[in-house]
């Protein structure tokens, strides 16, 4: 990247997986840097991906930092750039610059129980944390993952979630009951109240649509989680990623630099403009 902070590196799509179909489809892309490029990242950081002629989108890096050969991104098709990503094939070359933002303080959580609560596309930003915790299983206490989608077809990372079982407690949910669904039926915050994870020596990490996060945090506090035990990410619109374009501004913070990871203790002091 050198002196030109807006010039992306090039990366080739090595693998594409269709996670979720339908109108707001999600695909997971594995990107390998071209020309010996690359960068290190920490759990929770993002990258600005681009398709030349279409534009850029900020996307969470969904692979764990210890994976060096590629970086993985799960992209929901919502608009101009993301739809163009869904048209790409293995071998296509895209732009990537980053990493941007702060990260989850995973090392500081050693010895603690971790409760992950994700919804929709919100499993992607916390996936590197889950992967890191599982890779260092002995360093952490109980690990619990709550995750929900609208229907069974909206559950991303299905096979990977199943593989976690044993090392991790996995509680899936769908919004509405459907034939063949044996796990919880209802919204993610309700599933949380149904299982009542203990706040003792625990950290809760939640990510998903703003409305889900709002109710998850309310419920976590009801369960006895203190504000400094709750972490989330916020996703304001971003353009530059380097604290200059003003897009992601919330109060005094440029979320692309000070976020996207926030402890609720800090976030509650910012204007609720996210």
């Amino acid at each position: 990247m050198g002196d030109n902070i807006y010039l992306p590196q090039l990366a080739r799509i090595a693998h594409i997986k269709e996670e979720v179909g339908g109108e707001r489809a999600i695909k997971t892309f594995r990107l390998e840097f071209e020309n010996g490029g690359g960068f290190e990242h920490a759990c929770g950081q993002c990258a600005m991906l681009s398709i030349f002629g279409r534009g850029e989108s900020m996307i969470s890096i969904a692979s764990a930092p210890h994976i060096k050969d590629y970086k993985q991104f799960s992209i929901m098709r919502v608009g101009r750039v993301t739809a163009a990503f869904h048209e790409l094939a293995v071998g296509d070359v895209v732009g990537i610059r980053g990493p941007y933002g702060n990260s989850f303080p995973v090392d500081a959580w050693r010895g603690k129980n971790l409760v992950f609560i994700g919804g929709g596309c919100g499993l992607a930003p916390i996936w590197p944390v889950i992967q890191t915790a599982v890779a260092q299983r002995g360093n952490f206490g109980e690990i619990t993952v709550f995750y929900g989608g609208r229907s069974p077809r909206d559950i991303m990372y299905q096979a990977e979630l199943e593989k976690l079982r044993g090392a991790v407690d996995v509680h899936l949910s769908v919004d509405k009951q459907e034939e063949g669904w044996n796990a919880f039926c209802g919204f993610v915050p309700a599933n949380l109240m149904d299982k009542e994870p203990s706040p003792d020596n625990a950290i809760a990490i939640t990510c998903g649509p703003p409305i889900m996060i709002k109710y998850v945090i309310e419920n976590l506090r009801q369960l006895g989680f203190k504000d400094n035990q709750i972490y989330t990410t916020i996703e304001n619109k971003m353009k530059c990623g380097v604290g200059k374009c003003g897009r992601c501004n919330v109060g005094k913070d440029y979320v692309c630099v000070k976020g996207p990871v926030y402890c609720w203790d800090d976030l509650k002091g910012l204007p609720a403009e996210y």
């Binding site: 681009s50 002629g53 534009g55 353009k239 530059c240 374009c245 003003g246």
Partner: peptide, 15 residues
């Protein structure tokens, strides 16, 4: 100082 970043396309083949 707020700004936008956009792609302007000036030709199709090659892009």
């Amino acid at each position: 100082h707020c700004f936008d970043i956009n792609d302007e396309v000036t030709g199709a083949a090659p892009l």
